[in-house]
Design a protein around this nucleic acid. Structure first.
Lengths: 212, 212
DNA sequence: GGTTGACTATACAGTCTGTATAATTAAATT
DNA sequence: AATTTAATTATACAGACTGTATAGTCAACC
């Protein structure tokens, strides 16, 4: 009746490997030329695993996609946010904050776009992904709070919009580099905060393309 | 061999009716609680038509969705753009232009969101929808051109982004009214153009919520 | 009365979904 | 060494959707 105690020990390594293979497969499939190539069938096939294994590991399509997002977030240079928050200069902190997110979106652009689309088709996933954006909003509260007395909710929402993936994606278009997008976004962000336009330290290659 | 000449005459009325029923069904289904309810099967069912008829009329799923978008655009108060362009005051013209698009996005919010998602899953559709946005960009060139000597491409892209559905959708969130969103967007637009912040004539209910 | 073209009926082969049940296998425990 | 545990497989099911194809119905037109 009472189950015998059981430690996964080195079995865990195999489990982790399988899990990683599945997420990696999902990732590659979300990058496929044909967007519809993404399916649990396909993921399982490319991970050389049964579809049942995918359900076992993740429980649902939604949770697999959440895991994929989390992997991207873990890789995506978010550690640089430390730098931003440690900046003694508030304006520089803001610039670092913006640049960090632009680089994040940029590094997984196609995946983020398709992940979002999957979210629109699955409200649960949408909520899960939206929840992961809340700390971006919180960060904005902190960074903006150093430049503005008591940032209104409207202001935070504006900054949240300007640093969103959608703004990045539209602004980047087919040609603009991350640095160029950062420059444009930062211009808008500074404008919203009522700061002078020439921004602090930024790669000069993207400096002369600022809008306004 | 040579087909006998044939005018559709009053048969055309029936054809148009069928077509309209199909588009209307597509529309209702894109608004369904479950986003996945949308399918050609479902559309055909709700239009009391065979799936074959849908293919007959539109050729493909993509073209049906294009037709739906065009219907929205035709209804969506785009005629108000005349007003904007006829405004003698350039700043007021800008305000009208922004307000018109915010109202447009707002009136079909959920559909636009899901239409976009369908686009991400179908590159052909994405291109078709993107093409329909080009005249928004052209309009921005005109309206901005009245306020700025020779608007740079960067500037136009920024304005294009600020007036996009995505910006509207993110800013609107769960609670903001179209007028409130207009106020926020217009603030950003004016900032990008280097104009003073208090905007011209705008419903005062949304005036005091401007960011910055 | 013949012809045209919209719409229907039906079918096919393929893919995907979520769930269920039983079998396999290797590591962990005793 | 024998037993137990949990990951993974093997199959199956019922249902839905996709795009395409073929043949048929029917009312409007000539």
């Amino acid at each position: 009746m009472t189950p015998r105690p059981y430690r996964m020990g080195r079995r865990q390594a195999a489990v982790d490997k399988t899990r990683a293979r599945i997420v990696a497969a999902a990732r590659r499939l979300l990058l496929a030329r044909r967007p519809t190539e993404f399916s649990l069938e396909g993921v399982a096939r490319r991970a050389r695993v049964t579809r049942m294994t995918v359900y076992h590991r993740f429980g649902s399509r939604r949770e697999l996609l959440e895991a994929l997002f989390d992997e991207l977030a873990a890789e995506g240079g978010m550690s640089h946010l430390r730098n931003a928050f440690q900046q003694p200069d508030a304006e520089q902190a803001l610039a670092d904050y913006v640049a960090t997110f632009v680089r994040f979106w940029s590094s997984g652009r196609l995946i983020h776009r398709r992940l979002r689309a999957q979210g629109v088709l699955d409200p649960e996933l949408e909520r899960a992904l939206a929840a992961r954006q809340e700390w971006r909003r919180q960060g904005l509260r902190v960074v903006a709070g150093r430049l503005v007395q008591r940032p209104a909710d409207d202001l935070i929402d504006v900054l949240f919009t300007l640093t969103s993936f959608e703004t990045f994606d539209t602004l980047a278009g087919g040609t603009r580099t991350p640095a160029q997008v950062t420059s444009l976004v930062l211009g808008l962000v500074r404008g919203a905060l009522g700061l002078a336009l020439p921004s602090p330290t930024l790669p000069k290659s993207s400096r002369n393309r600022s809008a306004g």
